[in-house]
Structures are given as C-alpha cells and as structure tokens.
Design a protein around this nucleic acid. Structure first.
Lengths: 150, 150
DNA sequence: ATTAATCATATTAAATTAGTAAGATATATT
DNA sequence: AATATATCTTACTAATTTAATATGATTAAT
C-alpha cells in the first residue's frame, strides 16, 4: 500500500502554500526552494490541483498560487483523489457470471475486505483537513523555536 | 492508493486455499484453474507466503499447499505485509536538520496525516482474518444456490 | 518409471514514476 | 516599451515496478 511522491509532495506543497499565502500568491519557485522539491515537477502537480479547483493561479510577475477555499475546507481525501487517483482497492468486476467460483471469491474478498477498507480510508481522509496540517506545523515550529531558546 | 494484483490475487488465492484445504493440500494448478489466475505467477506469490510461514508446502505428486495456521489466526495485515510490503505511507526522514522548513513540514504531514492513517490501516487490516473472507464466501454461495432454486 | 507437484531463476513487455527540458503566454514593474 | 517573473503546456526520458511467461531442477506418490 503506497503513497507515491505525487501525493506526498503535493500534500507538503499545499501545506506550504496554506502557510505562506495568507494575503498574497506564492510562486512554485518559492515553494520548491523552501520544501526542497523539484519546481518543474511541482508545476505538474499544481496543474492537477488547479484543474480540480483546489488552488487558483495568478499569472505573470508577482503571481503564483492561492488556495481556492480556506484550509479547513480542503480535505486530504480531495487532495489525494486528485493526485493519486480514486481510492479503489477492490477490482471492478465485469462479466458477472453467476455462480462462477472465481467470481464469488472476488465478491467475497470485496465485501469482507476491500470495500470496508476503502470506506474507512475515505472517512479518515475526509476528516483530515489542510488546516490540521497547518496547526500541527505551528505546533512543530513552537517546539523548534523553544529548542533554540533554551 | 493502490493494491496491486500481488495483494489481490494473493488474498483471493489464500481464500481458495482456506476453503479447499480442510484435509488435504491444494495444488497451485487447482487454485489457478478455479480462480482463473496465472499458475506461474501464483507460484511466485506462494513462495513469498511460504517464506513468511503463512503456508506450508508438501512437495511431490499429490502435494500442494496448506495453511500454516487456522484461517482465523491469519490476518490480512500479515498477508498484505508479505505481498505488498510494509504499510509505510510516511517517508523515512533522514538528516533531521532541526528547524529546516522542509523538515518541519514533513514532520507535520507525518504527525497529522500519514502516521495516523498508517495506524488505522494496520488496525483495520489486523482485524480482518482469512476466516472472515471464508464466512463471506459461504454466505455468497448460499445466496447463489438460492438464486438457482427459485 | 511415470506423473504430479514444488522450487528456483531468468527473461520480458508494458506501464508507471519521477523527474528534466524547452518554450509559449501572461502580467507587474521599471 | 522592455524586462523580469510568473504560469502554462507539452514532450521526452531513465529507472523502476508490474505482471506475467518460460524453463528446468528437485521431490515424492503411484
């Protein structure tokens, strides 16, 4: 069970965007520098995020990206759906040849395992918002600066 | 978020094995025929399952595989760990350069998202046993035969 | 001896991943 | 008007993974 860098980088970049775009757009270059990610690669991810209306772009000098909605209205389910594709652990079952052994077995695996797992994943991811990541980051930063002040 | 065919075929094949190996070993050929899966490919999967002591093999004519434990003692967490690898959504963080912006962001994503998600997944998968899949399959079969009797 | 199995390893075509690269277009600033 | 700074778009690519296929060796029941 994997999350690819698409999902991981995307979540990280969106967290950066949420933290730094309070009043003004943030450019890919800035995000890439801060988060040490490939700017070219991030551009592709933001193209997806824009198409799905999770971020808005402002072109030209001084431009960049902003969130389309406030951070607490953007769930990780939406983000990962865009970047990693729909959460679909079970296999689409074509040709329902009734009473076929293989078919019945697959149905059972879906019912007892894959579908409940999908459902739980969606629920969990739906509950975590970008704001939660920002909150955690603020906590982290407090701890970090404490560390330096001791 | 994917499950590859390794995981899906493996779960399906183990369900078949659990259903048909009550008293005697079941050969790969039989499983492959019933479940319409590639026998050669299944052999590779069963090599992994054997190495992790989820199944035992009996070589030679009349041989095949049996479960190492009873079906209700084999969780899907174990099975998928073997076939799909450890559930590790967060990234291993090397070089903890304290107070680095990228590092702190990654830590926060892990704390607020990836680690809780991993934990939930492990708990969920740990609760589903091979026996649960067999029970569901028995239910399915009842329904199927009902269908024919009407 | 034959047959039916596992076991082990090598090969492969296709897809995916994780980028890199290059240029077109838009806009703020000077 | 020119320049710099952006997004936007598309094409390309090396490496890895996936999902097999193939072949032969070994083991054991009949």
């Amino acid at each position: 069970m994997y999350i690819t860098t698409k999902g991981r980088y995307g979540v990280q970049a969106l967290t950066d965007l949420a933290m730094y775009s309070r009043d003004k757009p943030v450019s890919i270059t800035k995000i890439a520098r801060r988060q040490k990610l490939s700017a070219n690669y991030l551009e592709q991810l933001f193209a997806l995020l824009k198409k799905s209306d999770l971020v808005k772009s402002i072109r030209g000098a001084g431009g960049g990206y902003v969130l389309s909605r406030s951070a607490d209205e953007i769930s990780m389910l939406e983000v990962l759906r865009v970047l990693e594709g729909e959460i679909e652990l079970s296999e689409a079952l074509h040709r329902p040849e009734v009473s076929d052994v293989a078919f019945n077995t697959m149905i059972s695996c879906n019912q007892a395992l894959w579908l409940p797992l999908e459902k739980s994943l969606r629920e969990l991811l739906g509950q975590v918002t970008l704001q939660d990541l920002c909150d955690e980051l603020n906590r982290q930063n407090t701890i970090s600066s404490d560390y330096y002040y001791i």
